[in-house]
Amino acid sequence: MRINLDFGAILERWPAFLSGAILTLELAVIATVFGTVIGVLGAIARRSDNPVATRVAALYVETIRNTPLLVQIFLVYFGLASLGVKFPAFTVAAAALTINVGAYTTEIIRAGFDAVPKGQLEAAEGLALSRWQIYWHVVMLPAIEKVYPALTSQFVLLMLASSVTSQISAEELTAVANYIQSDTYRAFETYILVAIAYVVLSLVMRAGFWALGLALFPRRRRLGTPL
């Protein structure tokens, strides 16, 4: 058996890889931003006194967390199509990833809310803060700070999972790899390089979240708590 590897032919296609990687990052950023919003709203809903809100939120979380992303993507893709609306693959991919990660962030942020000591709430009530002021200053920011590491790992996992959107032809990194390998017949080299690219992307995201954490949570910066 003679193995001859040729990475040169693949590396020549770097512009395609780069645009794929950028698209992957864009998907990740969109899903991170909107996923956080959904997570906060979902966590508030799950903890609310309104039984309808709690049930809807629980149903959403359980459905998403107990079905594969691939199937969710197909459902969003074909579901939208069956409504007669034709969206670009990128939009569908971003929507599906956001819906997916929102369920995980809901659970993570809820755990953060639960971890805020009761005494903190009582202290805030004693200071006559309004319900929303309490949520923002005493619950939300400390809760997110507490679960920030879990939250960011979830977003890195999501970036990796976004490779699944190649199955509905979103032109992200894995999709680029798929057509390059079918062009060059160098599948091994292509996927090795793409794997490395993903490792680099996850390191980039971790570094980004680390910097963001320093900016968001001054206490961490001052106390030097590792993120």
């Binding site: 058996m1 894995t174 790899a177 390998q181 599948a187 091994f188 292509t190 996927y191 794997a195 993903y198």
Partner: peptide, 22 residues
């Protein structure tokens, strides 16, 4: 390495990447 790579890419690597190597 593995936690930085999508499972999908690992799948492609073993299924499409190994045959060209024999």
């Amino acid at each position: 390495l593995v936690q930085g790579t999508p499972l999908l890419v690992i799948m492609f690597l073993t299924f499409f990447g190994l045959p060209p190597l024999g």
